[in-house]
């Protein structure tokens, strides 16, 4: 915060400007209605298009419609963690509070995305593979990712001092990323012994035709924008909460 004034003029307009909480609140407040509106629009168009106006797959029947939720949710489940990894690194290196708070704000959203991906996967799996749950490598790694989210959220909740919490969760996020990746490969290795080549998802098997492609892209954009909206809303809440705490502490001192 203090070093802001000592930044050379040439770098004044850099991206780091937005790391200033005040600036962030201004910009995000102005952007929020647009991003939120666009998210709602994309989601509505993508999902309605996908649900009502796409043909059934000749092999999977109407279950192919689940793809418009399943794939975007899975994508966001992973990307939310990647975003948390990046913002955690920024916090550790540059000590921008907004960055740490954005990571905190993203975690529950990422967890919900992961749960949606798992739930729709299970519902899809029942008619297609004849079981709700198979210990398929992909499913298993997603479940493990969900566990990492739980641990991360629990650690944030457990620590009182906000800066300590930000530091420790950032370290956990870094280490967790390495281990999540290791688990991904470990799980691949582990399941080869059971059933060979369990490539069970549609996207891998047959490249999707255009009829499914465009609604899917719309739906994915909707999920990305929704994620962005939620992270902005929740980060703003966290910043306000921090300020609230500071004011309350000052009151208590007086």
């Amino acid at each position: 915060m203090q070093h802001k004034d000592s930044v050379p003029i040439s770098r004044r307009m850099s991206l780091w400007e937005y790391a200033n909480p005040k600036k962030f609140m201004q910009v995000s407040g102005a952007a929020l209605p647009w991003v939120g509106g666009l998210a709602a629009l994309c989601l509505a168009v993508g999902l309605i298009w996908g649900f009502f106006f796409t043909p059934d797959d000749f092999r999977q029947g109407s279950t192919v419609k689940i793809i418009y939720i399943h794939v975007p949710a899975a994508l966001m489940g992973i990307n939310a963690w990647l975003m948390m990894l990046v913002t955690s690194l920024i916090w550790l290196v540059r000590r921008h509070h907004v960055s740490a708070l954005a990571a905190k704000a993203a975690a529950p959203v990422g967890l919900v995305m992961t749960v949606i991906a798992l739930a729709t996967g299970a519902i899809w799996g029942q008619p297609m593979w004849g079981t709700w749950w198979a210990w398929d490598p992909r499913l298993t790694s997603f479940l493990i990712l969900g566990l990492f989210y739980l641990g991360y959220i629990a650690l944030w909740a457990a620590i009182d001092n906000p800066d300590t919490a930000a530091d420790l969760t950032s370290v956990l996020c870094l280490v967790g990323s390495v281990f999540a990746l290791l688990s991904r490969y470990a799980v691949l290795f582990w399941n080869q012994g059971l059933h060979q080549g369990a490539s069970l998802t549609v996207t891998q098997d047959n490249p999707i035709s255009d009829i499914y492609y465009w609604p899917l892209i719309t739906s994915i954009s909707g999920f990305v924008l929704l994620f962005l909206t939620l992270v902005l809303v929740r980060t703003r809440t966290e910043i306000r909460r921090r300020r609230l705490q500071a004011l309350l502490n000052r009151e208590r001192m007086a």
Binding site: L47, S62, I66, V109, V112, I116, A119, I123
Partner: peptide
């Protein structure tokens, strides 16, 4: 739309997801 024999699965997938998204929002 005609969902055929998988109507329950498709609709429940949409309902569950929309409920979860609505919940976090």
């Amino acid at each position: 739309p005609e969902l055929g024999k998988y109507a329950v699965e498709v609709i429940s997938a949409y309902v569950v997801s929309v409920a979860l998204l609505g919940g976090i929002v």
